[in-house]
Design a protein around this nucleic acid. Structure first.
Length: 285
DNA sequence: CGATGCCCCTGAGAGC
DNA sequence: TGCTCTCAGGGGCATC
């Protein structure tokens, strides 16, 4: 579900709701998501203030006034939901779903709650100290954040040079570029007129630079649109994203290419993931 | 060490 | 209408 633009949107909305508020209590309703929830979550964060929120790739990182960090990955269906009252009907069309899938509830001093909801439970949380944050087992594996890659073309180009992996699979490798997922990989390749199956080692440095620029632009465009909603994603206020209305290839199988080159968007599977491209303007070199 | 496939889990939607 | 099947935007981990 959420890739970099959706996670960025979630992060900004969360900050709007909770900055400098005191967490009164944390209720863990299910001890295990994808992994067991950190044992010190309640002790380290109850009665503390969230002083900052940042994002790296698809991870959200909260830091409190005791320099404890809470690291959160939303997986495919993780959401945060805010409300002052107990009426979440705008968010849950079915009360049973709410009860089954609401796993962690943060309650703030002013009565507001921030609820983590995740039906598939592919999301996960971890804790770390601010000083050793990037030694965390998840964060230490991450590459450059997708929005910052323009200043880091050399390491990206070098890794591409060494691999026969299709370029689309390289873009999904979070240890190279953090935050690009299946949707934005297809979109950035279309904008760059590169075939998803082209071996990454065959791309020139100029092509990599071009591709990096298009990745940044597509991520920024999607952030401006509040992310993309295909089915699951909603931001913490219950809003859907709008970028799905501006996809050039993703979910546009058999539709005409937006370059008006006579091509029709094709869908194929790469490493088990849906991949969309135009066979005319994204021919292999 | 790099590449590949499996698997975690539920719900929506298509097809019959 | 109701059943069954397929698929979904992620990524850790075992295996080769």
């Amino acid at each position: 579900m959420p890739e970099l633009p959706e996670v960025e949107t979630v992060k900004n909305k969360i900050w709007h709701h909770i900055h400098h508020k005191k967490i009164l209590s944390i209720e863990i309703k299910r001890k295990e998501l994808r992994f067991p929830l950190p044992k010190n979550l309640v002790d380290n964060f109850s009665k503390s203030y969230i002083e900052s929120i940042k994002r790296h790739g698809k991870y959200i990182i909260f830091e409190n006034n005791h320099s404890h960090c809470l690291i959160i990955h939303l997986g495919m269906t993780g959401r945060f939901i805010f409300s002052h009252d107990k009426d979440f009907s705008y968010f849950y069309h079915d009360q049973k779903l709410k009860e089954c899938h609401e796993h962690v509830v943060f309650t703030f001093e002013d009565g507001q709650s921030m609820r983590y909801y995740d039906p598939r439970r592919f999301g996960y949380m971890d804790t770390a100290c601010q000083q050793t944050l990037y030694e965390n087992r998840f964060l230490k594996k991450l590459g450059i954040d997708g929005l910052n890659i323009s200043e880091h073309i050399d390491p990206i180009y070098m890794k591409c040079q060494k691999s026969k992996t299709p370029i689309k699979n390289m873009l999904l490798d979070q240890s190279l570029i953090a935050g690009v997922g299946n949707i934005y990989a297809s979109e950035a390749l279309w904008r760059s007129q590169i075939n998803p199956e082209q071996k990454s080692c065959t791309l020139s440095k100029k092509q990599i630079k071009h591709l990096a620029d298009h990745i940044i632009h597509v991520l920024q465009d999607a952030i401006s649109a509040g992310g993309s909603t295909l089915k699951d994603y909603k931001d913490p206020e219950g809003n859907k994203g709008q970028f799905q209305n501006r996809f050039d290839v993703y979910d546009r199988k058999d539709k005409p290419c937006n370059r008006n080159d006579g091509g029709f968007i094709k869908k194929m599977s790469m490493s088990g993931r849906a991949t969309y491209f135009c066979p005319i303007c994204q021919k292999n070199n």
